[in-house]
Nucleic acid binder design. Structure first.
Lengths: 338, 338
DNA sequence: AATATTTTCGGAAACGTTTTCGGAAACGTT
DNA sequence: AACGTTTCCGAAAACGTTTCCGAAAATATT
């Protein structure tokens, strides 16, 4: 309850607070013996410097804010672990907030973090975030900010992204190589870069292999299991079944799979499936789901490192965009049975 | 970068900082018109009170710390969402840290949070935490602390727990009712309350139904998928197969399921399975896994409410333990086929 | 031995708030 | 007109640090 302060230690040792401070900050102008003595008694008294007071004085807090849209799926938690791995080692504390895919909550989070004098921020934009003016201001003021995955072209700051186009292309091409010809794409919410990129990859893979494709092949679905179920059910009822589906992410693929199974369809015999952004689910469900894996830990670590670079290089800093590589984990859900 | 402070506003308005403060804190001794005028110009200048300075002065921060062992599985994230739901509404900010199942990290987290002058803490103990002396100290000092799920009998503080015994009993009884007679328990790491309780429930269900049971029925397994796989593989190699397994949690059940499938065994025909602590996996895998579901959101909300009670009732406070109810979701993995 | 330099430390200001205290102004009462 | 109340606001202290400045003590230089 009653915290031991620097004054208590000073009183006990009959010296000034400045000396205590010097001992703790390893300053040059203090005798080694006194420093050791101070450190020893301070430890005995259970004293440790109050970071809040320090923050107020230094105008920075050794804290980094992280804002993610959600942490129900394992993707963002895994990224956060990567972030922490790098930052904690550097003595930073990581404050985590979730925006719940809402622009309003996201903005509140940002402001709270800003008020807490955090030294920098790592953000993945929520689906609801259309207006990025606030971020523009932050960036203009030189505030250290790194975006990852859900980024915005309007913002000139460091970014860690995944090559959605390329891996959507590969994933689609994999289905084509397996011999599937009538492929649907279950797309994400429109107006988002990753939605567009994954769709483009899907389309261009068809173009390369000269497979016919039109708007009917692409269905805006969403990102949740329920979305995949809903769209799949509609297709089943309409009797409009493809022989393969490339889904914007694993949950929609899994939703589709559940609905197909429920109606007695076999996977991949009747319909093959490929997901995106590996979740722990992919290899556990039956049949195991072919999916594009993102290097979650690496994304976090890279974002943290970019942020540190910006924080440490006062002023002269050129934002970088790092594109990380993924992997297509081919599993049963997309293997053509001969 | 350059924050607008209360002094800037005071200078601009040619008044004292105390007046500004009064305006923002809705004090009685300020004229309404001046207050409105101040609030308006402050907003125009982009001023908002610095919470760090406030924390230093008030010796509290309107922040609540949450420490969980991990957030890879969806269980803890869901609890956290419940916590946030309650606390954010009350104007608290939630700082989340993970201990990685390590006592050392957990202690570091606690200290960091404490130094940050948080007003209270919600903690789920890590597996590695054997020594709870530090918590005893906190509690003795009257520091608001609520434990959930992974609690300790040695600590006299508010707790939100699940009736592990009861639901382990029900889960086992369900298997017995289905006609399974030779049932194994894949247990958690020893030395933890929940491990013991779930084991006791398993044993007592057998006693009630007068089914023979001994130490061979109970195998200390762990908590991860890999643990389930390892133990299951050993049993298969030994030719020592039960007709049903009650696992300490879903991951171990799923590990067992994977290994059984790999060796060509059918579920539930050859071996039935029941898990514990519903994960999103349970209903997605094939066959869907019967499992005991905990009310994650409710756990979080209750923990938050208990903490608020303690914070608001200065001094006179009696710790409460809330036991929440669960549900046995019966699915294919445990249904005896006639 | 006197002076110059270095080492070591204490005092005080500063960070941005809130709050207590006291005082001035405005008002009401006799 | 004198006094007591009330209303409103400013000055200053406090929260726990760090750091600048200067001074005393210790050491080195002449």
């Amino acid at each position: 309850m009653k915290h031991v302060t620097i004054k208590d230690v000073a009183k006990k040792l009959n010296c000034s607070v400045s000396t205590i401070s010097r001992a703790f900050n390893d300053k040059y102008d203090i005798k080694k013996e006194t420093r050791d003595h101070i450190l020893a008694t301070a430890a005995a008294m259970g004293y440790s410097p109050n970071p809040i007071a320090k923050s107020l004085l230094k105008q920075c807090s050794n804290q980094i804010g992280v804002v993610v849209p959600e942490f129900i799926n394992s993707f963002f938690p895994e990224v956060i672990i990567g972030i922490q791995e790098v930052l904690i080692k550097k003595g930073y504390q990581v404050l985590i907030m979730q925006s719940n895919e809402s622009q309003i909550t996201e903005l509140e989070n940002i402001k709270t973090l800003e008020n807490n004098m955090i030294d920098g921020m790592i953000v993945s934009l929520s689906l609801g975030t259309q207006n990025v003016e606030y971020y523009k201001n932050l960036i203009a003021q030189g505030f250290p900010l790194v975006l990852f995955n859900r980024v915005s072209n309007e913002l000139d700051t460091s970014k860690v992204v995944f090559d959605d186009y390329k891996w959507a292309f590969f994933a689609t091409e994999h289905l084509i190589y397996q011999g599937y010809k009538h492929i649907f794409h279950f797309g994400g919410p429109s107006g988002h870069i990753f939605t567009q990129k994954r769709k483009d990859g899907f389309i261009d893979a068809h173009r390369k292999h000269k497979l016919p494709i039109d708007d009917n092949n692409i269905i805006e679905t969403g990102l949740m299991i329920a979305d995949g179920e809903r769209v799949m059910e509609k297709l089943i009822n309409e009797g409009n079944l493809p022989d393969a589906i490339f889904a914007v992410n694993d949950p929609t693929a899994i939703g589709a799979m559940k609905m197909l199974r429920k109606h007695g369809y076999k996977i991949p015999n009747d319909v093959a499936l490929v997901g995106f952004t590996e979740s722990s689910l992919a290899e556990l469900i039956d049949p195991p789901l072919t999916s594009v894996a993102q290097p979650t830990h690496e994304i976090g670590k890279t974002a943290a490192r970019l942020l540190l670079e910006q924080i440490e290089s006062k002023g002269i800093f050129v934002p970088q965009t790092v594109i990380l590589n993924g992997r297509l984990n081919v599993r049963e859900s997309s293997m053509k049975l001969k």
